[in-house]
Structure formats: C-alpha cells, structure tokens
C-alpha cells in the first residue's frame, strides 16, 4: 500500500470490496427475515429447536452468569443495609403474630385430618413436586420468563404449574432435555383461570406489571379487597387450589392480584406434577339406548358429566 495514492486509495479499495460485501450482508439479511417468517408461521417446531439450542448453550453460559450473580448480590447488599434494621423490626412484629397463627393452624390441621377421616374423603388426585433451581432470567422488559434446571429427563411436561412455596409463579412453556422455560403470571401472554372465594371465577391475565389484572370476573360485586385468589383448575391443565395471591385495587380502580410468590428472590421453584384427571365420557352403562329421543339427549349428558 504505497502512500503516493494518498487519500484516493481507500475509495478505490472500497469500490473493489463493496459488491461482495454488500451481497453477503444482503443475503444474511434475507436469511434473517426468512428465519422470522418461519418462526411466525411454524412456531412450535422453531420453539422446540430453540429449547434444544438453549439446552446446548446454557451450560457454557453458567460461567458468565455466576460472576453476574455475585455483582448483582453486591449491589443488592449495599442497597439493603439501610433497610435491614427496619425490616428486622417488622419481621419481629410479624413473627409474634405468626406464632399465634401457627398454633391455630396446627389445631386446624388436626381437626381437618379428623374430619377427613370421618368423612372418608378422597382428596383430589395426588400432586408431586419437582424442585428445580432457577438457571437464568430470560425476561426482557416486555416478556417475563425464566429458565429452570429440570426438563424432559425429569419428567417435566408443558403446561404444569410452578410455585415457589408461597404462591403460584407461572407455568411451564417449552421443555428441553435438561432445562425448561417458565412463563411468569406477570407475562402479557399469561392467562390463568382463578377462583376468588365463594366460587367466583375470573381470568388472571398478566400485563407486565408486578400485579396481574383480574379479567372476566363472574360477579364483580362479590369481590372484596384482600380476598384470597386460588387457581380454579378449569381446563384440566392446572392443579386446583394453588394459592396465587390477594385481591388489590390499582390507582385506576381495576382489580388486580398481588402475587404471594416472592418474585424478587426466586432461586428455587417447585413444579407441580399433575396427573391428568380421568375423563368421564359417555353415559356409562346406566342409560339404555332405546329410542331416537334418547340419542338427542346424549351429547348434552356427556358435556355435563365432563365438567
């Protein structure tokens, strides 16, 4: 590269390199666009590919995530020193209250066990818990999800509920071999059927705020602030009666749910393994099919027993 060409040299050089580079960039762009279109129209297959890729990539990311965790916890501890004294007082006060509650709970538990025995009650099909640790926070400002350290080989299945011991955190969406993704109840795509005391049903829909919105409430007038919100188990995907949180009102007077789960400090979660309910299909042996009118009634009877 002689200097006598001076300033004009780069221009000539660039003109030589330009077309090849431009074609390469343009074709890369085309491939990316194609990738997006494929993702949009064949979502399931591409998402499966994505979970497999994450399965492969994430272990090497652990190295990067660990120092990150240390840095975060350092910031966290610096900020929390001032809060700790106040928090301690609060906790002590709460503890003294909780002690009396514990006594009550113990008594109730005993009473419950006795009553159940008396009733010979068959509780809902047993749940088992699978514990997993939180590997990575894959939420962006617009999506709320994270990855956990259990996957297909641990028996995880799409759609199962995830709790942190205090309350519902979200549901499984995307299962890899050894990792799976949890969509939080605060994610805009999350819709969960819930029950607000006394059989009042509603849909809990996430909207990126820390308290998801209560939608499609059956009887709005019956809802009271601080009501407990439980999953209703509708749709046979979620276990019923898992605590979600408590009813609160926001500044615009909309009803929301303050989650019981502690989203600020999620390290371990439990996945609730659900045995699918046995479907009750058909009228059984009780109704003898005889005339044409009975056939007309049959589908309705099936629908009712299915609920």
């Amino acid at each position: 590269m002689e200097m006598r060409h001076g300033i004009r040299r780069p221009a000539a050089n660039a003109r030589m390199r330009f077309p090849v580079r431009r074609i390469l960039v343009a074709s890369t762009a085309a491939i990316l666009a194609l990738m997006f279109v494929l993702w949009r129209f064949d979502n399931n297959r591409v998402e499966t590919l994505r979970t497999d890729l994450i399965d492969a990539i994430l272990p090497s990311f652990e190295i990067g995530i660990k120092p990150g965790r240390i840095v975060w916890s350092f910031f966290d501890s610096v900020g929390s020193f001032s809060r700790i004294v106040k928090q301690n007082e609060e906790l002590n006060r709460e503890l003294s209250q909780l002690k009396s509650w514990r006594e009550i709970a113990h008594n109730l538990e005993r009473e419950n066990a006795n009553l159940r025995r008396l009733l010979d009650l068959r509780a809902a099909a047993e749940h088992y818990l699978i514990s997993a640790s939180v590997l990575a926070d894959s939420s962006s400002p617009f999506r709320q999800s994270f990855l956990i350290s259990a996957g297909r080989e641990n028996g995880i299945v799409d759609g199962w509920a995830v709790t942190d011991g205090f309350g519902l955190v979200g549901r499984i969406s995307g299962v890899g071999t050894s990792t799976s993704r949890v969509i939080q109840i605060t994610d805009p795509n999350s819709r969960i059927p819930v029950r607000l005391g006394s059989g009042n049903r509603a849909i809990l829909s996430g909207d990126n705020s820390s308290a998801p919105l209560l939608d499609m409430i059956e009887r709005v007038d019956d809802v009271e602030l601080n009501d407990r919100v439980l999953t209703s188990g509708d749709g046979n995907v979620f276990p019923a009666n898992t605590l979600v949180g408590f009813v609160v009102k926001d500044s615009k007077n909309r009803l929301r749910v303050k989650p019981s789960a502690d989203f600020r400090d999620l390290q371990f979660v439990r996945v609730i393994r659900v045995r699918p309910n046995e479907r009750i299909e058909g009228p059984g042996e009780l109704i003898v099919e005889s005339s044409g009118s009975a056939q007309g009634l049959q589908p309705e009877a099936t629908a009712n027993s299915g609920n």
Partner: peptide, 11 residues
C-alpha cells in the same frame, strides 16, 4: 450474561 442473571423477577 449479566441480563440473564437471575435476580429480581418482578417486572
């Protein structure tokens, strides 16, 4: 990796 670090899952 820093963004992926699991801390504070509250939106």
């Amino acid at each position: 990796a820093f963004f992926l670090t699991p801390t504070g899952h509250a939106p």
